[in-house]
C-alpha cells in the first residue's frame, strides 16, 4: 500500500539543533520534513521530531519563548507520533540534573550525568543492547553501533519504557518507547545506514498510525 502523499514531519527548530542533518536524513527515508519554529507550523503534519544538542535549561527557554511547550505536550498527550533525539529525548522526562532544569514531564524520571564514564562527553560510535523487540529497531541487529554526543541520560521510573541500553562506564538508557512517543539518546541522522533504518522504521510507524487513527486518538492515554 502506498500513500498518495509523503509523511509530513515537523522538526522543532528552537535554535541549538543540527537542523540540516535531521531534515536531510528524513528526506533520505522518504518523509517530508517541515521546519517548525512556532506552533502554527505543526498544523497538518503527521508526526513531530524534537531534535537537540546543548543544555536542557537553554533548550526549555527557547521552547518557552517560541510558545512550543504546551503544543508539544498536547501533541504527545493526544497520542500522536513524536520522536525525541538526544536532548530531545531527555526533554520528555520530568527534569534534568543539568542545571536543575524542569523539562516537559511527559515521562516520569530525571536525567542524570554519566558519572562513571571514563570520558565525558560521551562522543563516538557505541553499540546498543536491545532490552526488548520494538518495531523502531526492525532489521537492526543487537549490538549495532550508533553515534552518540552527550553527557546526560534519562533514568525512567517506569522501566517498561526502556527499549535499549548502552554502556559507557556503566549502562545507560539509549532508547525508549511509550505508545507513540519514541526517544533515542544517539543521533540517527549521524549513524549511517543503521540510523537511517531507525528513521525509516519511525516513518513506517507514523504511516501505520496515520491509517489507524483516522478516527479518535489511539489508546495512549
Amino acid at each position: 500500500m502506498t500513500r498518495p502523499k509523503p509523511i509530513r514531519i515537523a522538526v522543532l527548530d528552537y535554535g541549538a539543533a543540527n537542523m540540516v542533518s535531521i531534515t536531510k536524513a528524513l528526506v533520505a527515508v522518504g518523509a517530508e520534513p517541515v521546519v517548525a519554529a512556532e506552533p502554527a507550523a505543526m498544523a497538518g503534519v503527521d508526526a513531530l521530531v524534537v531534535p537537540g544538542v546543548g543544555a536542557a535549561a537553554a533548550a526549555m527557554d527557547h521552547l518557552r519563548n517560541q510558545g512550543l511547550i504546551e503544543p508539544v505536550r498536547d501533541w504527545v498527550r493526544a497520542g500522536k507520533p513524536c520522536l525525541g533525539i538526544c536532548l530531545g529525548l531527555q526533554l520528555f522526562f520530568d527534569c534534568s540534573d543539568e542545571g536543575d532544569a524542569p523539562t516537559l514531564g511527559l515521562l516520569a524520571g530525571r536525567n542524570l550525568a554519566l558519572l562513571d564514564a571514563p570520558t565525558l562527553p560521551h562522543i563516538g560510535w557505541n553499540s546498543i543492547n536491545l532490552d526488548r523487540a520494538h518495531p523502531l529497531f526492525d532489521g537492526i541487529p543487537d549490538g549495532s553501533y550508533f553515534y552518540f554526543v552527550h553527557s546526560f541520560a534519562p533514568a525512567p521510573e517506569d522501566r517498561s519504557v526502556i527499549v535499549a541500553h548502552t554502556t559507557h562506564g556503566r549502562p545507560f538508557v539509549s532508547a525508549v518507547a511509550w505508545g507513540s512517543l519514541y526517544g533515542l539518546q544517539f543521533h540517527p541522522e549521524k549513524s549511517s545506514d543503521a540510523g537511517l533504518r531507525v528513521l525509516s522504521n519511525f516513518v513506517a510507524l507514523v504511516d501505520a498510525s496515520a491509517s489507524f487513527t483516522a478516527g479518535p486518538a489511539a489508546e495512549v492515554a
Binding site: K24, V27, Y147, E189, K190, S191
Partner: peptide
C-alpha cells in the same frame, strides 16, 4: 559541506 551532509549521514 551542504552537499555532503545531505547524502552522507556520518559526523
Amino acid at each position: 559541506v551542504r552537499r555532503t551532509a545531505s547524502r552522507a549521514f556520518v559526523p
